[in-house]
Every structure is written in structure tokens, then in C-alpha cells.
């Protein structure tokens, strides 16, 4: 009885001891020195390995950060908080940069655009675009098959009535959605206050009117009213220059199609953008919160 237990125990125990000794030797012999700062930085990072920083993963980012001590290196999901923390670990001052945020340049939900045909195929925008699928007549607008929603690791995009909408609070600015969209209607913009023309159509005003209730018709009114010369106009489509834009709200008020969207506007700008007569009907009063209509 004793031997029945003893011998296996001795044998297995001995085997374990020998093997752990070999492992110990190997760990000593092949150990690679690594700056403890790398581990510290890695610890501070979100460790989502999303690749938004341009490095394959968080570890590579940490290695490069410690090596270069470049505070311009930025982790978009971590945002300002992580930037300060990481810079602090190296005794540096975080540079003032902030993660951008995604904006959808289309407002053409299903009820606002003309539909044609019946699409039966893969439930994916890029797949639909390959065979000219999708049912919206507009050749520039959101296809509505949620490729961006699936590409977003942070749940910041959701589809509403065939249109992608970004939750600015959840968006970390990694840009995965931009790459996922076959129509290129998602762009990155500044965090905080921003105004953008939510349309991508380069069709003429007449054509846009034919298929969309909220598309840019190229009337240039926004260009004329902008006091900061921030409205660019090219090929029947207006576009906001975020460097120049002061988010005064003048263009929003001027747009006859409600194509221009503003987020994080000041009370004064809001009042200008949505004159009292219209304010109630448009439901834009929640524009203060970051991601109100976006």
C-alpha cells in the first residue's frame, strides 16, 4: 500500500524537481533585459491591441515610447488620461494632443432617401458595394449594412434606420470605421466642438433633390454666411475646414436642407444655429452634449 503511493509520488516529485531546475537554468541563461519602464507603460495602456496608434499592438507602442521618449506618440483609445499617465512615468510632460473623433458624412436614413431595388446578398457594406447592392439611390451615401459598426471595437457606432451614427463619448478615434467604409463617408474630426457637412454627394443639386431630403445641394449659402472663411466648396459639395471653423453656427442656420451638423456648440452659437422659431421642431437642443446628433 505504502509503495503504491510512495513510488509514484517520489517519481513524479523527482521528475518535477528535475524539470523545474532545467527551466530555472533556461530562464537564467536566456533572460533578456528589459527596461522596467516598458512594463510600467504597458500597464498604463488600455492593452486592447487595437492598432489605432499605428503600432501592431500595445507592447510595441510601449517599447517605442520608452525608446524614443516622444510625447507626440498618442494612444487614441486611452486619450488624454493615458497620455498624461504614460508621460508621467517617464517624467515628461504630455503634449496637448487629443484623439480625434469619427463623423459620419451622411444623414440619409432610409426614411429620408429614395430606395430602389431589393438587395439579397451578404449583410456587409463592402460586399454590397462590390455588386452595386444596397437599395439607396444615392451613389455616395451610407449603405446601411453596418460594416463600420462591426469594425468598431468600442461600440461607438450603431445603425439607426439604415444610417451609421457615432457616439462621440464612446469613440476613441482609432479610425477602424474609416477603413471599413467602402463609400468613405466617415472622417475623423476634432474632439469637442465641431461642425460638419453631413453629406458626401458630389451630384448636382437637382440630382440630390431627386433622391435625398437632407443632402447637400450645392447652394453655397453656407459658404456665403461663414464669417471665418471655413467653408470649402468643391464639386457640388460643401466641406468644413476644422482649422478655421469657430463653430459659430451661422452655416447651420443658413443651410436650407439641415445638412450641417454641429456638436458641442456654445449657447450663443446654438441660438444662432437654431433660431427660436425652429428650435423646438428640429430637436437639436441636445447638441450640447458631445455626440448629440452625431
Amino acid at each position: 500500500m505504502v509503495t503504491n503511493v510512495l513510488y509514484p509520488a517520489l517519481f513524479l516529485g523527482g521528475l518535477g524537481a528535475v524539470l523545474s531546475f532545467i527551466l530555472l537554468l533556461a530562464a537564467r541563461k536566456f533572460a533578456v533585459y528589459e527596461d522596467p519602464l516598458v512594463a510600467a507603460v504597458l500597464d498604463a495602456l488600455p492593452n486592447a491591441n487595437c492598432g489605432a496608434c499605428g503600432y501592431p499592438g500595445c507592447r510595441q507602442f510601449a517599447l517605442e515610447y520608452v525608446k524614443s521618449r516622444d510625447t507626440n506618440m498618442f494612444c487614441p483609445p486611452g486619450g488624454r488620461e493615458v497620455a498624461v499617465k504614460v508621460a508621467g512615468l517617464l517624467g515628461l510632460e504630455a503634449s496637448p494632443g487629443e484623439a480625434p473623433v469619427a463623423m459620419v458624412l451622411c444623414l440619409g436614413s432610409r426614411d429620408k432617401t429614395k430606395q430602389i431595388g431589393r438587395y439579397e446578398g451578404l449583410d456587409d457594406c463592402r460586399a454590397a458595394a462590390l455588386i452595386d447592392g444596397g437599395t439607396k439611390v444615392c451613389p455616395y451615401g451610407c449603405l446601411g449594412y453596418a460594416s463600420c459598426e462591426r469594425a468598431c471595437d468600442y461600440g461607438a457606432i450603431c445603425m439607426e434606420d439604415g444610417l451609421a451614427r457615432v457616439d462621440g463619448e464612446k469613440c476613441v478615434g482609432c479610425g477602424a470605421c474609416v477603413a471599413a467604409c467602402p463609400r468613405g463617408i466617415i472622417r475623423m474630426g476634432p474632439r469637442g466642438t465641431r461642425v460638419w457637412v453631413a453629406c458626401s454627394s458630389h451630384d448636382t443639386g437637382k440630382a440630390v433633390r431627386g433622391y435625398c431630403e437632407v443632402g447637400c445641394i450645392g447652394c453655397k449659402r453656407c459658404v456665403k454666411v461663414c464669417p471665418d472663411d471655413a467653408m470649402q466648396f468643391d464639386d457640388f459639395l460643401a466641406r468644413v475646414d476644422h482649422e478655421k471653423c469657430t463653430a459659430c453656427g451661422a452655416c447651420i442656420a443658413a443651410c436650407p436642407r439641415d445638412t450641417i451638423v454641429g456638436v458641442g456648440l456654445t449657447a450663443e452659437a446654438l441660438a444662432r444655429a437654431y433660431p427660436p422659431a425652429e428650435a423646438g421642431s428640429e430637436g437639436e437642443s441636445d447638441g450640447e452634449s458631445d455626440g448629440g446628433r452625431s
Binding site: 451578404l122 456587409d124 462590390l130 455588386i131 477603413a179
Partner: peptide, 19 residues
């Protein structure tokens, strides 16, 4: 829908390689 899937794969594969 094999052809549609493969087309989708081909186009995404090209994108991946380009990236």
C-alpha cells in the same frame, strides 16, 4: 452565396495587402 463571399474576400484581401 459563394461567389459573393469570394468577391468580398478578394477585395478585402487586396485592401489588407495594400495596408
Amino acid at each position: 452565396r459563394l461567389v459573393h463571399s469570394i468577391r468580398f474576400g478578394k477585395s478585402d484581401y487586396r485592401r489588407l495587402k495594400a495596408a
